[in-house]
Design a protein around this nucleic acid. Sequence first.
DNA 1: AAGTGGTCTAGACCACACC
DNA 2: GTGTGGTCTAGACCACTTC
Lengths: 246, 246
Amino acid sequence: MTASQDILGRDRASGGERGLSWRDIRDDVKRRINERVWQPGDLLPNEEEMAREFGCARATVNRALRDLADAGLLVRKRRAGTRVAAFPVSKATLSIPILRLEIEELGAEYRHALLGRTVTRPPPDIAAELDAPAGEPMLHVRALHFADGRPHVYEDRWIDLRGAPRARDVDFSAKNANEWLVQNAPYTRGSLALSAANASAEEAELLRTQEGEALFIVERTTWSGDVPVTRVRLAYRPGHRLRTHL
Amino acid sequence: MTASQDILGRDRASGGERGLSWRDIRDDVKRRINERVWQPGDLLPNEEEMAREFGCARATVNRALRDLADAGLLVRKRRAGTRVAAFPVSKATLSIPILRLEIEELGAEYRHALLGRTVTRPPPDIAAELDAPAGEPMLHVRALHFADGRPHVYEDRWIDLRGAPRARDVDFSAKNANEWLVQNAPYTRGSLALSAANASAEEAELLRTQEGEALFIVERTTWSGDVPVTRVRLAYRPGHRLRTHL
DNA sequence: AAGTGGTCTAGACCACACC
DNA sequence: GTGTGGTCTAGACCACTTC
């Protein structure tokens, strides 16, 4: 049996069947981009050629390059080939767990308080955001979520009873609306907006801070097909950071 | 030639080779979860069985289920099988382009102004965040980015000259630091934090707003291996929203 | 020990974009 | 038309986890 080396310098028996893993290839391509062997805008060899160079199947190269393209490092087009992105876009994935888990993962004790529950017509901006008829009454739920007894998030939520009819009969003082909806009102699409806002007098009092303090705001709206499900505005206590890695 | 129907009710010629696409399978599984055929926590059939049901190769089922697991809808473990996530985590992908493109995509004209460029020792919190020696001098760059002549973002950036040595000789009044670094100082890992802060007097003046206004803050730190590259704090003008979909 | 997902292979055809 | 990535297949072996 003769021995050979693949492009990464690994010894491979010539009779060996299994080549490099797609992670190996991904990492090597990433390295070449970082070391500027392939510069922004450069055209990479096609998949077949890379498969030959790496000594693996084309599907393996495809998996590796697809991964890098998903990460924003490569731009792939049929016929045009694969290029290093001219401006590699940082893509960060925000995982947004239910509030209880978010707080418990901080090592804090979770508690919530229902502040209000009414069925009423939402203000026009809320109805418009949900693409709902203006006159449609919705369930309006307001709650405060605590971490170790301190107010952590103020939740202001509108629930469309057509998208989540069973919500009408749920006791949201026992099970919070956030958690109930995640498990019982699946959505097919949603929008998310992150911003900053000065605390109103009411928000300041609830979050035990001063009026005007900068609050981190998360607004989420979800639909099931074309039917609105829910729209929520979360106001976090001052100093809160949403962290992730790149 | 006889005809049969696959599980989705499509007619398939019995001699036909090609089954459903992984997207078809993904969508059908997603539909069953939304319609609560499979409920949170439920165990799904294994890949081989699903491949038989769908009339496709196991690899195709794998691709579909892997996609749903990446999206947070399924939890997959070897030997234990595939389950519907008990608390489907919303995962949102934030694409963070360079500031010029972000502004141009709003349909606005981009311009930037260099406010300052010095080589000095960073304050302790910056050095700590970067895991850099406290005494190490860094390049400190401050700039304002305009959209249609209005201040849009205030950028306060520290550049570690060990991670990006060539930055010392770049004219950041011609090419902004954000763009230059993206193309010339690749990183292997980074952290991102989103928060809210009240505008300082200086920030208010630069962004042409009032002191105390709530500003949306993005802080990004990147390293190349263990070497710090850069740390930037972006303060957006009041009202800015970072949007994405779920 | 056994069952599950994870991955790789070799080959094939397809879809799209550019010519 | 032609070249590229996109996907599917059938089979195989592996890695991990639970039994």
